[in-house]
Design a protein around this nucleic acid. Structure first.
Lengths: 111, 111
DNA sequence: TTTTAATATTGCAATATTACGATATAAATT
DNA sequence: AATTTATATCGTAATATTGCAATATTAAAA
């Protein structure tokens, strides 16, 4: 069907999944990494940094924005994109919590 | 086209994207969380824990396995699934590195 | 050895994603 | 005002994902 049964999952599960899904494409990983290298988040040429056409990049940016991973400020005729720190913190603490739980059960490993 | 231009991205970017993509579905988030609650990774009834049919769950498990996030051990006629710690560590350090870089550029924020 | 239990695979329908050309929009520049 | 620059949106083709019924597989249990 290609449709996810969202109603059966918790809000937290849906949120983590949505953010992870947004990162789940190499172009979007590259966009995030590029946003980290530009110092003042003076944006602009994200398109030139990627091996993809402008509409495709625009679409990827939209998905990152909708997942709350980046935000954009209009600066004249350009748009300044930045990473949304809060969402990345959520992801890190999700994985941090998992690793913490894993360490607690070192006694009972079967694989 | 629905096809990703993988050849233009780095191995690291592809790996992070693949792992994130695997977590990018609420059922797979739920599976990971469930695997954390069972103490001895005596598996079995993951199907009963999820609001999805058995073939669907099996498919999600396969994707998690292919992304290297979980591993499965055959135990008689059942299969014991566990979380692959290394891959989660990779993800956490990816996000950790991002947050570290973000903290370094607090002076030049525009959004 | 037949049955049961646990999981995987196949096949398929519905929907989502990826990519891009064409076009639209909107502000800066000339 | 016309042009340029930066980005978004539309439309569409190719492919991927999600979900499940039906069926296969494989090992334990009866």
């Amino acid at each position: 069907m290609g449709i996810t049964k969202t109603e059966h999952f918790s809000k937290a599960q849906l949120e983590i999944a949505a953010m992870a899904k947004a990162i789940g494409h190499p172009a979007r990983v590259a966009i995030i990494q590029y946003l980290l290298t530009v110092d003042s988040c003076i944006c602009g040429d994200i398109v030139n940094e990627l091996p993809l056409a402008q509409p495709t990049v625009s679409q990827h940016l939209k998905e990152l924005k909708m997942a709350g991973l980046i935000k954009g400020n209009i600066e004249g005729n350009a748009i300044c994109y930045c990473i949304e720190e809060k969402s990345l913190e959520k992801l890190q603490s999700f994985f941090g919590a998992i690793l913490k739980k894993l360490e607690k059960k070192t006694t009972n490993k079967c694989c």
